[in-house]
Design a binder for these strands. Structure first.
Lengths: 152, 152
DNA sequence: TATTGTTATACTCTATAACTATA
DNA sequence: TATAGTTATAGAGTATAACAATA
């Protein structure tokens, strides 16, 4: 029985995507760790940076960290003094999470450092290549997004 | 003081890479979980698949799981009956890890399923695009690899 | 009733260092 | 001495379900 036409054509792409993703994960994790943060903690700091703050619900949606897990991550960031949790007037069920000045300081140093460290790998690319790569990744992401089971 | 020329040119690429990587991670994890495996467990099964087996040391190098962690991952795969650990004659310090028939059955069903599920996202691409994407990812990976601290 | 977030539970992964057995 | 792997330790993330407080 012959293969369905094109059934496994994209496997080499998947393999290459996995390898690239592992390499990038390794590179970014190394650098994040140097700032005393875990990856989820960095994600939270990066999400809160340059915002006035947000609810746990919104933070959970943006970081893809489920609410039960998020409580623990926020506990540790609170211990480090990097975030504040306050009960807003208008809805006392929710919590408003924001960076403290110390948290902002960490964001200001860690975020550009991690991003630019990772970015340095690509500095040799000219603008045209850069844009081409970005367009390609965006296309891949859009294709992946369509396969993802809807959140809710 | 003006920015150094080109200092942050590649940040949009990094951002897009992060997003693509998160989407892919989500997609593959969903599918891996459906086979009753964690990501590290899947990596081990995938690494052992289509090989006669290998030492813990080699498995550790290939999966990037450190030896102390690997012991625990292998323990759980052993509990599930998916691998065997045997002491080879020629060097009784080491352990030879291989898939059991049950492990091979899991490999044969899980690995193609995960890969092709992820691959389906890209089935709409023609061969030329596919090859172009692969080449770009390989270029990105090579660039990242040069920034990674040598494992030693 | 529905929503927001915490707590309880249980498990997995993670790194590190000390350790055992073998070479 | 060096190498292969385990164990001990401690911490962090993960999902789930039950729960409390509020809307």
């Amino acid at each position: 029985m012959p293969d369905q036409p094109g059934k496994h054509r994209s496997i080499p792409l998947v393999r290459e995507l996995v390898r690239t993703y592992q390499a990038f994960e390794q590179l970014s994790s190394q650098r994040i760790k140097q700032h005393g943060l875990t990856h989820p903690q960095f994600d939270v700091i990066a999400t809160l940076g340059n915002t006035p703050g947000m609810s746990c619900r919104e933070l959970s949606e943006r970081t893809l960290i489920t609410k039960g897990t998020l409580t623990g991550v926020l506990d540790r960031l609170l211990d480090k003094g990097l975030i504040s949790r306050t009960v807003p007037e208008h809805d006392r069920r929710s919590l408003f999470v924001a960076l403290t000045p110390a948290g902002e300081a960490v964001f200001d140093s860690a975020f550009p450092d991690v991003v630019s460290h990772c970015g340095e790998a690509f500095d040799h690319l000219d603008d045209a290549s850069l844009n081409q790569h970005i367009a390609m990744l965006a296309a891949l992401r859009a294709a992946i997004g369509q396969k993802l089971e809807p959140a809710e």
